[in-house]
Design a protein around this nucleic acid. Structure first.
Length: 286
DNA sequence: GGTTCTCTGCCGC
DNA sequence: GCGGCAGAGAACC
């Protein structure tokens, strides 16, 4: 899901600008090569600059990001259908194989050949560590920390890990890995420390924007969902922001607990409101 | 490494 | 609400 874009089957949106954005999305999806900003704007009957703003306001991502995400989706689909890597490059509309390989790391998290083989090559080391909020499960790929889950039951956390990474090979962490867990636990106990470990988080372009904005919220302060939406330049995407917060794969490292409701309420928290409350109170007293 | 394209902040209508 | 510019940065060749 890249945008909360309206679907074709619905009644046509009353807002003609939304309709124009929708048409632009379809244009991007059906073109062999991503249409230029100027072409999209012309089709929408707006200036390039204004079209760009309207598009981003409605979808939360820029036309280019939308096109890139769509291209990535096409490449994934082609590879999943067992096409050769060369075919996938062609079908997804990449200009050259060099670009494709360059992009594939971000897009697939692995080389295209590995992805085609079912992603079995991804290995995630993980371990559980006790902390004052219960248990923390930390998972790490060769690139960085890919998941931090909080909970009370080791079995439930392991199940959650397997559910999130159904194709990965899950390997119990060794002694060396304990250090990583310790760092994460320290970050839970003293959230103001932050986590200086590399992260390996996958998400849509929109989710990455939100997550980046969350990491910019200073410890000890909070922001509202609406503020985050404005900071990423998508003031109307408040609900989508909340969705991206909920999809945060690395608790505490990306401080989604610092996002609260406009009315002063805490809002929700994937790992339970008591944990959100505890984290916030810890930060405010430092 | 130069050029083109994208993106955003700002202003004017 | 919309157009337009400037300037920075990214993408491209």
């Amino acid at each position: 899901m890249i945008v909360s874009a309206p679907h074709r089957s619905d009644a046509p949106p009353r807002d003609p600008r939304l309709a124009a954005v929708e048409r632009a999305c379809r244009l991007i999806e059906h073109a062999d090569e991503a249409p230029s900003l100027a072409a999209l704007a012309a089709a929408a009957g707006l200036s390039t600059w204004h079209f760009h703003r309207v598009f981003k306001g409605a979808t939360g991502v820029t036309p280019k990001e939308y096109a890139a995400a769509h291209r990535a989706r096409r490449a994934r689909a082609a590879l999943e259908n067992g096409r050769s890597v060369t075919d996938a490059i062609y079908e997804a509309g990449f200009a050259s194989s060099g670009r494709f390989y360059e992009a594939s790391d971000r897009m697939l998290g692995m080389t295209p050949t590995q992805y085609r083989a079912g992603g079995a090559a991804t290995e995630i080391r993980f371990a559980l560590g006790p902390c004052s909020l219960g248990l923390a499960l930390v998972g790490q790929t060769t690139r960085g920390v890919c998941t931090i889950l909080l909970g009370d039951s080791a079995a439930a956390l392991r199940a959650e890990l397997a559910r999130r990474f159904p194709r990965a090979r899950l390997v119990a962490g060794d002694r060396a890995f304990e250090a990583v867990v310790a760092r994460v636990v320290a970050c839970v106990e003293t959230p103001t420390l932050g986590l200086d470990l590399p992260l390996d988080v996958r998400g849509t372009a929109f989710q990455h924007r939100v997550w980046r904005a969350l990491r910019d919220i200073p410890a000890g302060t909070t922001a509202t969902y609406g503020e985050i939406a404005r900071r990423i330049g998508a003031p109307r995407a408040v609900r989508a922001v909340a969705g991206a917060c909920a999809a945060n794969p690395v608790a505490v490292a990306i401080p989604c607990h610092r996002v609260v409701r406009e009315d002063g309420g805490l809002g929700g928290y994937r790992w339970g409101l008591p944990r959100k409350r505890a984290l916030l109170s810890r930060e405010s007293h430092k």
